[in-house]
Design a protein around this nucleic acid. Structure first.
Lengths: 254, 254
DNA sequence: CGGACTGTTGATCAAGGTCAACCTCTGTGG
DNA sequence: CCACAGAGGTTGACCTTGATCAACAGTCCG
């Protein structure tokens, strides 16, 4: 267990928000309160099931999960990977029954966030509301890029895109060091995220390594040439970046 | 031009909302005000460009548009089709530069909605805020289903899914009569939405017709067996439906 | 009448799927 | 300490889906 688990104020979500704006003490305290109580689950455990209702979102603090939809005949599409700091997903607040499931793929630490609690927090700090809205928009843009990748890119490009997206997500919560990160999903999952077969994912990753774009050993992944990877993935712009100025104006007045 | 264009209160968005809840007179009036001033554009005109900033959303009243991303080498992915009553898309409010474009594919009537105006309206009527939030969640669920279709369904199933989605969207604004509707996009666009080639879309539509699932003539499309189409598309549940009870509780208190 | 746009059909091809064998780890129990 | 099982990854052989290329037909429009 890491340091923040004992002092619950420094959850990864806070690390992520700090990269966008300076947080006030009360804000940090309120956000930390969302992490109470901490829950744990092992790999392969469902955090939320397909078809389940519920007005709670899942706030992930440690470990990875997948958001996925599995068809009756077993075909599975992974919508995206949830990493520490992710709030997946607030739209559950308003929906009667969710059409996908959230499943841990490594041991996880998380908490359940009630709609009412989050709304109360946002009412107290409209600034936070603006940033969270912006983070939601960023999520949507990842989903769009994912759709473009699966619909129109070749296998090689798709895998490049997936690695690029994970790299970007992890960097936002400080889980990338020296362009390297831990990659818990197995090749079956990478396949179900990219719409490929696991055999082809294996071949593709090997090719990328041969061509000097990545380096792997076990679950350790290093991007030896991030710029080239990004170009292969057909991504034009870095995601995220600083918070646009005009956001604050939207919500700061009463 | 249709009747509502002269009396701007009955825009399709209002028709859509009425299917979820009974609207109050002030709400109808406020919503109608969003349609001022009306703008027009011809087929192939961009309503919003890729990479463009802007704190305005586009509210479509008549005609169809596509939300799409086009790569430098010309490959294009259509994210979805916008039909009358759609507000595409509010996340532009908070994003510095959009990563996709919105282009009319038939003559359209639309208006630009300012973030401030919409927020003011929602502040006046939290009920509307709840429904709009819910409609946004519904949009996201369409996007997820689209991703599943493109990533894991066969060509035949994908085309079935697309037709099913359009059918559901159009029904929500009363543009389906007798399981039939007008389908402005050409087969090139259907291909770019499904991740197929236009040749294969042609073959697939012919097969569906041969097998008695659809009937076509020109831009007119009829689903001769909607239930079967839905099954082919691997869709379990009808989308939309009545508004969940607990939504109102979320926003109705101060 | 000629040209753009759209859809249809046939012929051929290639990207990626499927099947199967095998290998390497890692953990487990005797 | 070794035998074994199970999961994950790799590789080769073969096959299928859907892409590509190309010709042609219908329709709309100036």
């Amino acid at each position: 267990m890491q340091a923040w688990a004992d002092s619950p104020v420094e959850i990864p979500l806070i690390r992520k928000l700090r990269q966008c704006m300076a947080l006030r003490v009360e804000e940090v305290r309120d956000l930390g309160a969302l992490a109470q109580p901490l829950r744990r689950a092992g790999a392969r455990e469902d955090l939320a099931a397909q078809g389940q209702s519920g007005s709670t979102a899942i706030l992930l603090h440690e470990g990875w999960a997948i958001r996925h939809r599995t068809l009756r005949d077993g075909r599975r599409q992974i919508l995206d990977f949830a990493v520490p700091g992710d709030l997946c997903d607030p739209s559950r607040f308003v929906v009667a029954r969710s059409d996908f499931a959230i499943t841990a793929i490594s041991p996880v630490v998380y908490s359940l966030v009630q709609a009412a609690d989050l709304l109360a927090l946002l009412a107290r700090s409209p600034r936070l509301g603006a940033v969270m809205w912006w983070l939601e928009a960023l999520e949507e843009s990842f989903t769009r890029a994912h759709l473009v990748a699966v619909g129109r890119l070749t296998a090689y490009e798709r895998v490049a895109y997936l690695l690029w997206e994970l790299y970007a997500r992890l960097k936002a919560v400080g889980l990338v060091q020296d362009d390297a990160f831990d990659l818990p999903p197995n090749q079956d999952m990478l396949a179900d995220a990219t719409g490929l077969s696991h055999v082809h994912v294996s071949r593709t990753l090997n090719r990328m390594q041969r061509e000097g774009v990545i380096e792997r050993s076990g679950r350790h992944m290093r991007l030896t040439d991030p710029a080239r990877l990004r170009a292969i993935a057909q991504v034009d712009r870095e995601p995220g970046g600083p918070l646009p100025r005009h956001i604050h104006d939207l919500l700061d007045r009463p």
